[in-house]
Write a protein that binds this DNA or RNA. Structure first.
Lengths: 229, 229
DNA sequence: ACCTGAACACCGTTCAAGT
DNA sequence: ACCTGAACACCGTTCAAGT
């Protein structure tokens, strides 16, 4: 009944044990990427590792730590920028878009980020990088300090929305959805919704990336305007 | 399609009134306010209403609909503004802060809002109001259309953060937490974190409301700067 | 016809018992 | 001493059965 270990083949997955925090996280990231956060449960993870759920607690204190560790790995994928005052805005855009993309590629992880902004070394390095870029752009210290709270906040919230939008796109064609939305706006009583009906095209134009770029752009415009004033 | 209450339909609220969507939501809102979203489960709700969980499904299609309905009630608490071009910015601040406050008062509901931006009549009226205020401020149509996506996004994300911060404040004094944070920043190696260590005071100053006001302010500054350009 | 008890298929976490 | 089977206390949702 106990099947003898088969001869090693090249596409053999690393043999079952031994468990480790890194090994558990590897599997968790795989499930996260392919099936989203909801699918990453302690029990599913244990099953995937051919063990009981209790065994995971030797290496990871619980679900919350697991989620934070996954978030940290995602944050670690973002490439940092070497500040260049001549192109600080473009660099800031790249940095934030990198964070957005990394999160969108790991559906659901953004909800972890909004709930508990991480303080790991990796995310502190990202914050450090943002501060450097903002200062390179001539933003005041106080504005830079506060902005480096708000920029990730906009980014993570955008990532949640993008992930939801993307998921809906799997169920229903994206064009269909937008069209339904436009029609919904158009169908509103113009007397009570004069602006919404008038701006229906503007409300529904642009994709996620364009709208995210807009959000960051407007925010940076605001910071620049203050620096000048 | 709820059948009308049989005879003697007084406004008393005794042990076991007939179930209804409104009645279920009343209880849900109470639990939400006092214990947060996590505590609002179908089974808890059923228990509170002296019935089995299956009975709720006669009136509410499931947990997701319940959550959206709660969110809608929260959104309905926000007072709308009658647009006055002379003070459109103050009005926009009040509107967004009203939304923030309503969400913070119902811990966890903001996470529902980030995940699925609502399209109920109430939230459409809020969007309509925002558009009116933005246009009163001279913001272009396209910017207004996109901004009325971003402003609630900033608001709901801020609400999630505020709720978490508030919850942590119950476990540990708020001042202690800030002080720990400042020390954590100061303890970082200055060679790798020159900006973070230098700006530690700015990073940790201000409370949630001040930072939220800053976020909206900067964003509006950006919109105004674009309108002028 | 309407309502719901009981069941199904899951969770996260703990701890006594086995090795 | 280390690991884990089994249990505990929960979930959301369904549907056959009872009224």
């Amino acid at each position: 009944m106990a099947s003898p270990p088969r001869a090693r083949s090249t596409r053999d997955r690393p043999a079952k044990p031994p468990l480790s925090e890194d090994g558990i996280l590897d599997v968790a990231m795989l499930i996260l990427r392919e099936e989203g956060l909801e699918a990453v449960t302690m029990r599913r993870l244990a099953g995937e590792l051919d063990t009981g759920p209790a065994s995971l607690y030797v290496y990871i204190s619980g679900r919350d730590e697991l989620r934070n560790a996954m978030l940290d790995r995602v944050a670690g994928m973002v490439e940092l920028e070497t500040p260049d005052p001549a192109q600080w805005r473009a660099q800031l855009h790249r940095l934030m878009h990198g964070l957005l993309a990394a999160m969108v590629a790991h559906p659901g992880i953004a909800t972890v980020a909004v709930a508990n902004p991480p303080t790991t070394e990796r995310s502190l390095l990202a914050a450090e990088n943002m501060l450097a870029l903002l200062r390179a752009g001539g933003v005041t210290d106080r504005d830079a300090g506060w902005a480096c709270d708000i920029l990730p906040l906009i980014t993570t919230a955008s990532a949640v929305e993008a992930a939801v939008h993307q998921q809906r796109g799997q169920e229903e064609s994206d064009g269909d959805f937008v069209q339904r939305l436009v029609q919904a706006f158009a169908a509103l009583p113009p007397a009570r919704f004069p602006n919404l009906t008038a701006l229906a095209p503007e409300m529904t134009s642009g994709d996620g990336d364009e709208r995210f770029r807009f959000a960051i752009d407007v925010f940076l415009d605001g910071l620049v305007a203050r620096a000048k004033a």
